[in-house]
Design a protein around this nucleic acid. Structure first.
Lengths: 209, 209, 209, 209
DNA sequence: CATGAATGAGTGTTCATTCAT
DNA sequence: GATGAATGAACACTCATTCAT
């Protein structure tokens, strides 16, 4: 079956992480066997190793792919809106997909990757790259917002960026444990808080007093 | 007619999770073997099974113990302060220990337990109990704070409680990946945000005068 | 089944190489599976790994043990006889066991180890130690024999030692391929050659008379 | 109507053992994969199987080719010189190439084939043919030499032939393990021994006394 | 009671060979 | 004819747990 098109190969390659996510979400990364993934991907044992060198390499690919998409989303939001508006856009962009079952499934795997990063230096590097980049961008956005008096000036932008990421990570975690965790009200609370903080920042009014 | 005193037994029983935390933090829950734990606890293979029925049972004990302490801390804070003051107290009580290496090590195991909960129903139950109780208490505190106009009234108390927990969980995660994550500035940012929100809530009171 | 006697353990440990030799002689080192060895040793998969860390470790143990015995035999012969007499003794001591089937079986494994040494640095080191020591001793014996005019003086003792070892190794090889290779006539030929060389060295003494 | 010339095909066919020798010398017969050989020969997986039915078939071809050349060399020496002179010629013809790196590499593969013969009946047959033919010829040469009183009459010619082959095989082995094994001094020692044996054989003169 | 040797099912991965394209 | 993707049986080794001593 050689001489296949590059398109065929790349489709094949992409279907493996997809199948793996299904297995890992269902069984957990350590409990899921390569046989499970192989079966799910409708491949043979040998075939899967043409595309990924190891079970870990599949995890790494899943991780890297997710982080790339996230970074792109943040960069786009910064380019489009900037400041607190971009933060609101991003909040919606990150939380809205959690309403979909497939995204929740994928995030369940993400939680396992978070733990895996603690023991696997390669995964750790990917996870850190995937968090450090967005954090720097968010910090820059917070800086912008501070310049516009949308965020209290004394807040450390990096700490604020960490907090925003934490608000997302923590919710992902809680939703993974309990699907009833409500995205809407959580997002609403965050937006109210953001608004409260932003409104508070009206130096013109203060100066006007 | 026990050959050993019950006190000896219960000390022994407590030592095991302690040794296990060291191993799990170092190697990861799945990579660490029972042999590692047995060696760390200076026990024999047979002996450890007198205290815990399985590797999972040790994880469950570690999880349960942690959650008991957390719940107690929250209950105490509520009883002592109440309202936004209690929230500030709790923030400090939860974050301050992260300055200690042993707490960070213990939290690394916690991260793994979060992932483990996704696959292990018994662990899930413990983790959920450990999160649901505190969340309800925090929600009650938020309710109190709203009554005192310390928190915007439109915020869903439960969502706010989730957000507070998320702020902690997310930081634990980020610190586990990168020990340089700074507790002080993170806590400061949260406090500034809390203050900003609270201050914002004064106008009604003023108008009420 | 713990708390067993050290004697029991060392018996256990010795029976594994013994079983492995049977398997490796029958199937070849690479074809024989650990399951074969395990079955032959009447052990379980796990048990064998308590005694040897890997399949290679078993090979290494077999190799080392053989070389120890050989070195001891050469040292003993040198101490007892010295000179050409020791060489004759050693020839008989090394060739005579080849009349026994179990020794031939063991030597078949030896041939495989010779090849294995080419790819496995650990085995190479053991094989070289096992050849270099004896070679040095044989060279010393040849030097003694030259001092006694039993061997032509111009011969390089080290080369002569290599030749003696080669005469043995080559025969082992040929007998492994063809069990009809006759030990007696081969040994007789070597002894005639040794005698011819030794007698040739007498003329000086005769002339001295 | 072949698309490619037979000459092209036979060149191709000869290239494969050449590439295989490089791989087997480097990695060992069992460690080297067909992929390695395929890459070294700059062929495709499918193509190589047009020339050789299996990995073993390549080994067999390598073995057979080597033995043909050896047999031809011995036959030529017998025709040219005969007696002890032919033995000396052959010694030089077999040992001299060992000064070249490529020959040593090829002999490393030879050592592995010796081991492989113990488990692979087809390889065994080739190896035995490759040793039995030369041995018979060498035995004949020894017989000639005995007739000329160049070798002690009581020596079994077949055993002497085995010994000569052993002297070569053993050296190949020792040089494979330790490239510092010196060809010159080894060959010199053999020649001194041969000379000592030959000179000793002057019964006519003794009888003349 | 404590010990630790033993168990054995189960794991990720390899690789000679085939055959659809 | 040539290609190289696919196959899948086979492998060495691990480790939570047990239970004879």
């Amino acid at each position: 079956m050689p001489r296949v098109s590059p398109a065929y190969l790349s489709r094949r390659r992409r279907q493996i992480p997809h199948a793996a996510i299904a297995c890992f979400a269902r069984e957990g990364f350590h409990r899921a066997t390569m046989q499970d993934v192989i079966r799910e991907a409708r491949l043979s044992a040998g075939a899967i190793y043409r595309y990924f060198a190891s079970k870990e390499a599949i995890i790494e690919a899943i991780t890297a792919e997710r982080h790339e998409r996230e970074l792109a989303a943040i960069a786009a939001a910064r380019a489009a809106d900037g400041g607190a508006a971009a933060l609101r856009t991003l909040a919606r962009e990150f939380f809205a997909p959690l309403l979909r079952a497939d995204e929740r499934r994928s995030r369940r795997v993400g939680v396992q990757i978070w733990a895996e990063a603690l023991r696997n230096p390669r995964v750790l590097r990917i996870v850190r790259r995937g968090v450090d980049g967005p954090r720097a961008m968010l910090a820059a956005l917070v800086g912008d917002a501070q310049a516009r008096h949308e965020v209290p000036p004394r807040v450390d932008p990096d700490a604020a960026a960490r907090a925003m990421i934490a608000l997302f990570q923590g919710f992902v975690l809680q939703q993974a444990w309990d699907p009833r965790a409500d995205v809407e009200s959580y997002l609403a609370a965050i937006e109210i808080a953001l608004a409260a903080i932003s409104i508070r920042q009206r130096p013109p009014r203060r100066r006007a007093r």
